[in-house]
Amino acid sequence: MAERPILHRDDPQKAPLVGHVKVTREDWLNVARDILVSDGVAEVKVLAIGERLGVSRSSFYWYFKSRKDLLNALLDDWEGRNTAVIEAHCALDAETITEAVCNFFRCFFDPELFDQGLDFAVREWSRRDGKVRKRIDLADSARISAITAMFERHGFTQYEADVRARILYFMQLGYHALDQAEPLRDRLARTEGYLLGFTGQPPRQSELEALFAFAREKARR
Rank of each mutant, 00 (worst) to 15 (best):
R57K: 07
A32H: 06
V21Y: 06
S58E: 14
T24L: 03
W78S: 10
D10I: 05
G54N: 10
L47C: 05
A32N: 07
L74S: 11
E43I: 04
D76A: 15
L47I: 12
S59G: 09
L17V: 13
Y63E: 00
G40D: 11
S66T: 15
V41F: 02
G40A: 13
D34H: 10
I35D: 06
K22A: 15
G50Q: 08
L17P: 00
V18C: 03
L70S: 12
N30L: 13
G19T: 10
D27P: 00
W78H: 13
A42E: 06
V37I: 14
Q13A: 12
Q13E: 10
V46F: 05
R67C: 09
E26T: 15
N82I: 02
L71T: 02
G50A: 14
E79A: 06
T24C: 03
W78T: 08
R81M: 06
I35C: 04
L29Q: 11
G80N: 10
R81N: 09
L17S: 12
S58K: 08
N72Y: 10
A15Q: 14
R33M: 11
A73P: 01
D69E: 11
K22V: 09
F60V: 10
H20L: 08
L47A: 14
S38K: 14
W28C: 07
R81A: 11
R67Y: 13
L36A: 06
G54I: 06
